[in-house]
Structures are given as C-alpha cells and as structure tokens.
Computed example of a mutant assay.
Amino acid sequence: MNLRLTIDGHQLDATLIDSTAARDLAELLPLTLAMEDFHQTERIAYPPRKLDTTGAPAASTPKAGDLAYYAPWGNLAFFYRDGDHSPGLVILGRLTEPGDIDRLATAQRIRIEDSA
C-alpha cells in the first residue's frame, strides 16, 4: 500500500509492507497526529488504538526512513536516523524518497493517508 504523509505541510510518499500491523494501521487512515522527538533518532506519534502485531518479529533494527510501531508503548515511530535493535519494534514501511528523511527530524504534525 502506498501512503501520502503530509508533514508540516510538505507531502512525502511511503510504502507499507504486507503485514498484519501495517494492514491494521491502514484501516485507521486517514490520521492526523501530533509528533514529538525521541532520542534524537525518531519522531513518535500515538494512533487512536494499539495495532495488531500478530506474526510480527520479536525485535527489529530500524534504518533512517523506516516507519515503525513500538508495541510496548503503542506508538508509531518515524526514523530520521538509524536506530538500535529494539524488542517490540515492528517495521511497517519506508519512505519512498531517501532525500525526504530530513523533514522528519523537526516534524510537529503528520497526516497519514492512502495515496491510491
């Protein structure tokens, strides 16, 4: 599934992988969420409910540009730097254009919608 992310008025494209958690996120779209920084590595936001992570790996190592879900806290994570291997982290997708990663570092609000 292709997504359109609108971050502080700038549109970016992303692609979701085929997983239970990614499909569950897609069912919540469109979403507009406030974002905050976490460890100068990612911007996080909270969807209205926890996602179904059935079948997800127990841990993941995120790369800059990854869109992920941190199951223990129930937050979405948008990585603008590579992250550490993390139990409970589920990769959902990735930004299409690597040059767009810098926009994530200061993002305050994000709108996520299907771009189909």
Rank of each mutant, 00 (worst) to 15 (best):
I7L: 15
D8P: 14
H10M: 10
Q11A: 12
L12C: 04
L12E: 01
S19T: 10
S19W: 07
A22H: 08
R23C: 06
L25S: 02
A26I: 08
L29K: 02
P30V: 05
L31V: 07
M35C: 14
M35D: 02
E36M: 15
D37P: 14
D37L: 12
D37E: 13
F38R: 12
H39P: 03
E42W: 14
I44R: 10
L51K: 08
L51C: 01
T54A: 09
T54N: 06
A56S: 12
A56V: 01
P57A: 07
A58D: 07
A59S: 13
A59K: 15
S60I: 03
T61E: 10
T61S: 12
K63R: 13
A64W: 04
A64N: 02
A71E: 14
P72K: 15
P72E: 07
W73M: 07
G74P: 13
N75F: 10
N75K: 14
N75S: 11
A77M: 05
F78P: 05
D82K: 15
H85N: 12
G88M: 09
L89I: 10
R94H: 15
P98W: 08
D100S: 14
D100A: 13
I101H: 02
L104W: 00
T106C: 00
T106A: 09
Q108S: 06
R109G: 00
I110M: 03
I110L: 03
I110N: 00
I112D: 00
I112P: 00
S115C: 01
A116S: 01
